[in-house]
Design a protein around this nucleic acid. Sequence first.
DNA 1: TAGATTGTTAATCGATTAACAATC
DNA 2: TAGATTGTTAATCGATTAACAATC
Lengths: 213, 213
Amino acid sequence: MSSNAKNEIPKAVISRYTRYLTALRSLREEGVHWVASRELADRLHLTSSTVRQDLSYIDFSGISKKGYESEGLEAVLEKVLGVDAPCNVVVVGAGNLGRAIAQHEDFIKRGFNISGIFDDDKAKIGMKVGSLVVSDVSSITRFIKSGNVSIGIIVVPESAAQEVADMLVKAGVQGILNFTSTQIDLSDNGVVCIEARLVECLQELSHAISRKK
Amino acid sequence: MSSNAKNEIPKAVISRYTRYLTALRSLREEGVHWVASRELADRLHLTSSTVRQDLSYIDFSGISKKGYESEGLEAVLEKVLGVDAPCNVVVVGAGNLGRAIAQHEDFIKRGFNISGIFDDDKAKIGMKVGSLVVSDVSSITRFIKSGNVSIGIIVVPESAAQEVADMLVKAGVQGILNFTSTQIDLSDNGVVCIEARLVECLQELSHAISRKK
DNA sequence: TAGATTGTTAATCGATTAACAATC
DNA sequence: TAGATTGTTAATCGATTAACAATC
C-alpha cells in the first residue's frame, strides 16, 4: 500500500522515470511481466534502494517476493510523465541535423509526432523531408496555433537560436528542446526549455578520458 | 591566489565547465576580455556563488573588481576538460541521424574531427557523406587502431547498440557517445559512455509541460 | 579612499544509500 | 513456514547557496 500524493516529485526522480520507462518497454518486448527493483536497478546501473525510493512517489505498489507488474508500472509512469497521449512537435531548421531529427523513428515510436519542419532559407523551403515538406518559417505561428503543437525543437545555427525560441514562445508552444549550444533565455513566460547540449556531452567524455591517463 | 590542486573535481562542476566554455567562446566573439562571476552566472542561469565555487577547483584566479580574464579562463578550462587538442571520432550507423551527426559543424568547430562513418547495410556502404564515404563496419577495428580514434558515436537501431559498443571497446576507443535509448553495459573495461537520451529529453519536457496544467 | 568583486568557509538543501520491519 | 522483496525511515553523501573577510 503505497500512495504518496506528494505534490512535487524531485527532478532527479523524474529524469530516472524516463529511463525506467525505456527499460519497461524492452521488458514488455521480452515478454517479462514482473520485475524486481534489483533487476530494474541492474539494467540502469542504479541501486535497488534508489528504484524503490523513486517508485514511492507514485501511486503504484509492488508485491513482496514478486516485484512490480511491468505493464501496470509502464502505464503509470507514462501518465506521470504526460506521455500517455501523442503530442505534436515542430522542428525549426532544415539543415542536416534538423532533417534527421524530423525523421527520427524513435520519436514517432514514443508518441512524439513531428508535424512540421521550417526554415528561412529559400533553397530549403519546399524540400521533401520524409513525408513532410519544409515550410517557410514565417508561416510557423499560424501552423502552431492551428495544429495543436506543444513542443518546438530548435536545430538552427547558434546565432539564430534565441530569436527562434522567442518566435516559438510567441506562437504558443509550451516546451522547447534546444539542440544548439546557445543557452536559451525564457524570462518568466511559463515555457520550459531543455538543452540537448551535444557538444557538451562530447566534452564531458573528453574530460573523463583524459582523467584516466 | 587560488590553486586548489584537488585531485577530484565534482561531476556537476565538470558538467558546468563545458557550459562556461561555450559562454566564454561567445564572449570572445563579442570581444569581451573580462567577465565577472555574476555576468557568467546570469548567462547560464546560475548564481555567482556557484560560479566562484566551481572556479575554485582550478588553478586560475580572478581579480577583485575586474572578474576573470576570459581568454585565459577559456584556455584553462579547455585543458581541464581535455579539449585543448583535436580528437578523432567515428560514427557507427549511417541512417539519417548518423549521417547528420557525421556532418555536424558544431562538432568540428569544437575540435571533434569525425574521421569515419560505418554501417553494416550494403545499400549504405559506399554512400558519400560530406567528405566521407560510408565504410563496412567489419573494417572498423583496423580503422580505429590505425587512425588514433578515441571516441565512437553509436547511432544504430536500439537492438544493435550493445553489440556495436562491444565492438568499439574491443577496437580500442576510450569513450562512447550513445544516441540510442539502450543503456550500454561496459563492465569494467575502463571505457566511459555518455548517453545522449534524446527521447528521454522530450519525455522530461512532456512532464514539465503537463505539470503546469 | 570607497566600492565592487573575489575566494573560501559554513550552512542549507537535495539526492542517494543503508537498514530493517512488514508482507506476500 | 521460510525466504525474498517491498516500502519507508534515518543516515550519509554531495551540491548549492549565503555570508563575509580579503583584496584590488
